[in-house]
């Protein structure tokens, strides 16, 4: 009896061991994955739970905080809208045509992702400042970029539009060209074909890219700091408070920003990927 139990135990142990050996890749990857997940979640969670709800509420009632958050949200939205109007046509063009130097163009589009954003801000300052013809031309029609809302928007566009273009391009590449050809034989003009076939079929990639662009815009700091550190978008307000009053004052604003961003991000992602199968 006792002997039997022991052999039962040892065979169970052997089974578990065999199971572990057979799945050693899965187990290893699971453990490594857990490390990176915790690395992402713990700081965010700690931050959210280190401010009391009362403090957060008080912070939200501050006019300066609210206007900074609101400014961040709507400038990021305008940046994304501009990105859609100008980026989607380019994405479609790149998905449908091949030409010498296409690789180079595609690489250039991604450059804003790799350059330090402070440097990107300085580059924009050179072009959109009044010392250069682009800046002075806009100045002539009354649009200022330096220390102004348009400056925030172009800084956001510059650093985040690659996400939208890349995603939209991949979306258009997945649309079978023959669907567009069939649409033509059914009497649709190139414009109608684009709006009735290509665009609806790429809509998820475009929506996903827009969410990415919006999220990247709202989190932008470096380029905006150089070009338009005033009016203050939320990340700049957090930075200012950290510099002037220290961590205790910066923390609630930062927490609010994270909570609001996560909330909007989740909502937008849900809308963008609605109906998509897992």
């Amino acid at each position: 009896m006792v002997a039997n139990e022991r052999t039962g135990d040892s065979s169970r142990v052997r089974n578990i061991l065999r199971w572990a050996v057979q799945r050693r890749l899965t187990i290893t990857f699971f453990l490594l994955g857990m490390v990176i997940l915790l690395f992402i979640f713990i700081p965010l969670g700690k931050m959210i739970f280190s401010s009391s709800p009362a403090t957060l509420w008080d912070t939200l009632l501050e006019g300066e905080v609210r206007s900074a958050i609101w400014l961040s949200i709507y400038t990021a939205l305008i940046a994304t809208a501009v990105g859609l109007v100008l980026g989607v046509p380019l994405a479609y063009f790149l998905a449908r045509h091949s030409f010498p130097g296409k690789r180079l163009v595609e690489a250039l589009i991604d450059v804003p992702i790799v350059v330090p954003h402070i440097a990107a801000g300085i580059a924009l300052l050179f072009v959109f400042g009044k010392g250069f013809f682009v800046g002075s031309a806009f100045d002539a029609i009354g649009i200022d970029f330096v220390f102004a809302v348009p400056g925030i928007i172009i800084a956001m566009i510059f650093v985040s539009v690659p996400f939208l273009i890349d995603s939209a391009k991949q979306g258009f590449e997945k649309v079978d060209v023959r669907l567009e050809k069939v649409a033509r034989t059914l009497g649709a003009s190139p414009w109608q074909t684009f709006f009735r076939v290509s665009l609806p079929l790429a809509r998820r990639s475009i929506a996903g890219g827009s969410v990415m662009m919006w999220a990247r815009s709202i989190s932008e700091f470096g380029a905006v700091l150089v070009l338009a550190s005033h009016p203050k978008i939320a990340p700049i307000l957090v930075y200012d408070r950290l510099e002037e009053y220290g961590l205790d004052y910066a923390l609630p604003v930062a927490t609010l920003l994270i909570i609001i961003c996560i909330g909007i991000f989740v909502v937008l992602r849900t809308i963008a990927y609605r109906g998509e199968r897992a």
Binding site: D176, R178, L179, K181, V182, A183, R184, T185, S189
Partner: peptide
């Protein structure tokens, strides 16, 4: 193509999936 009055059916049908 849209002005020719020619109908086309591809081998794998190319139905509009949306």
């Amino acid at each position: 193509p849209e002005k020719r009055g020619i109908g086309f059916v591809y081998q794998d049908y190319a139905l509009f999936p949306h």
